[in-house]
């Protein structure tokens, strides 16, 4: 759907050349939510702005739907942009227009007739959950509501791609979640491809299918969100994963815990996208003659199921515990048993 090859952007400033994006390669599939995470200054905004050519690339190519964005003429670029929605950290709504008129703006640009415009705007207002607020001005809305207007506006011309530049970074955690839910909803309902950039791992965890980690203008790691969570390779990635998971190595050493529980068995359950056995603990204690005691852990929900680690203490007959662990191993949950000290 989107294929990016050798993309680079150099900003020539008075004192130096800034290589904001350098030799970046990526492929984004149709209908997926592709997240790009990185610290401030990593080049994320530049990257996403290159996709709709708000910045002109210094090198490389961008193909969206077999159309080479990087070589379009001005007029064709304007048309191509109507097929791409964009939402912004600071919403960028026209304060002089009402919610309805803001949403109608891209339709006016695309030359949609008035009657049809009105119809489409009503649809969009409902879609983003702003029913009844159509006649309000942006200044009368909360941050979350403003972003809903931004999303409705971005979707007006039925784009195939939605670009989100730190769309939730100006919002509080709860509002962030509601906006993320809306994005997931839209992705499922309309099947559109979403490219989003963020510096919050929480956002990636909650809605993305795939993630790319950006550092110094390059993608340093890329993969399915769960894989990246499970096996972060780069240091930056580990730091981002720790952002949502804490650092299990430091917080809990299995052997130390084992000392406190000389009887039974201490085990670590790694959830790596488990969907069917979400209630694993109660399942185990129901099916086997063991008591399961959760000592420590953190489980989080991603688009591909539960992810995280639980440290549990199993009490009961040795054979029964073994059978219980064998059962757990048959699910996708990985089991690690404390070594004898």
């Amino acid at each position: 759907m989107i294929s990016i090859k050798g993309l680079s952007k150099v900003f020539r400033t008075k004192d130096q050349d800034v290589h904001a994006v350098s030799d970046l390669e990526a492929t984004i599939d149709s209908g997926e939510i592709f997240g790009v995470i990185g610290y401030s200054g990593a080049g994320k905004s530049t990257f996403i702005r290159l996709l709709n050519r708000l910045e002109d690339p210094s090198g490389g190519t961008i193909n969206i739907d077999d159309r080479e964005i990087s070589s379009l003429s001005k007029g064709d670029l304007r048309l191509a942009r109507q097929d791409m929605g964009m939402i912004f950290q600071h919403f960028n709504l026209l304060w002089s227009r009402t919610v309805e008129d803001n949403i109608a703006f891209p339709l006016e640009i695309a030359g949609v007739p008035k009657e049809e415009r009105k119809h489409r705007v009503d649809e969009l207002v409902e879609l983003v959950g702003l029913g009844g607020r159509g006649a309000s001005y942006p200044s009368q809305l909360s941050g979350g509501q403003k972003q809903r207007v931004g999303i409705a506006r971005a979707l007006a011309n039925r784009p195939k791609v939605l670009l989100c530049d730190e769309a939730t970074s100006a919002l509080d955690p709860e509002t962030t979640d509601s906006i993320l839910d809306l994005l997931v909803d839209i992705n499922a309902k309309l099947g559109l491809t979403i490219v989003l950039i963020t510096h919050e791992m929480h956002v990636i965890r909650k809605i993305c299918h795939r993630v790319a980690v950006m550092e110094d203008g390059k993608i340093v790691e890329e993969g399915d969100v769960l894989d990246v969570f499970l096996r972060p390779k780069q240091k930056v990635t580990k730091r981002f994963v720790d952002q949502v998971m804490g650092d299990p190595d430091r917080e809990s050493s299995l052997s130390l815990i084992k000392e406190e529980y000389p009887l039974g068995e201490v085990a670590q359950f790694h959830f790596v996208g488990e969907r069917t056995h979400q209630a694993l603990i109660s399942e185990v204690s129901r099916k086997f003659q063991v008591d399961v005691n959760v000592l420590h852990g953190k489980i989080t929900q991603t688009q591909k199921g539960a992810y995280g680690t639980l440290i549990v203490h199993l009490e009961g007959e040795k054979e029964e515990i073994e059978r219980a662990l064998t059962y757990v191993r048959e699910t996708s949950v990985e089991v690690e048993v404390a070594f004898d000290v």
Binding site: R81, H90, L93, L94
Partner: peptide, 27 residues
């Protein structure tokens, strides 16, 4: 006038004329 709003209009594929008459002047 907020630069972000002008950029949003560009991202929607607005012509210069539209940016002047529908963004810059009203805002």
């Amino acid at each position: 006038v907020d630069k972000g709003v002008i950029e949003a209009a560009k991202a929607m594929g607005a012509k210069y004329r539209t940016i002047i008459f529908k963004v810059l002047l009203p805002e």
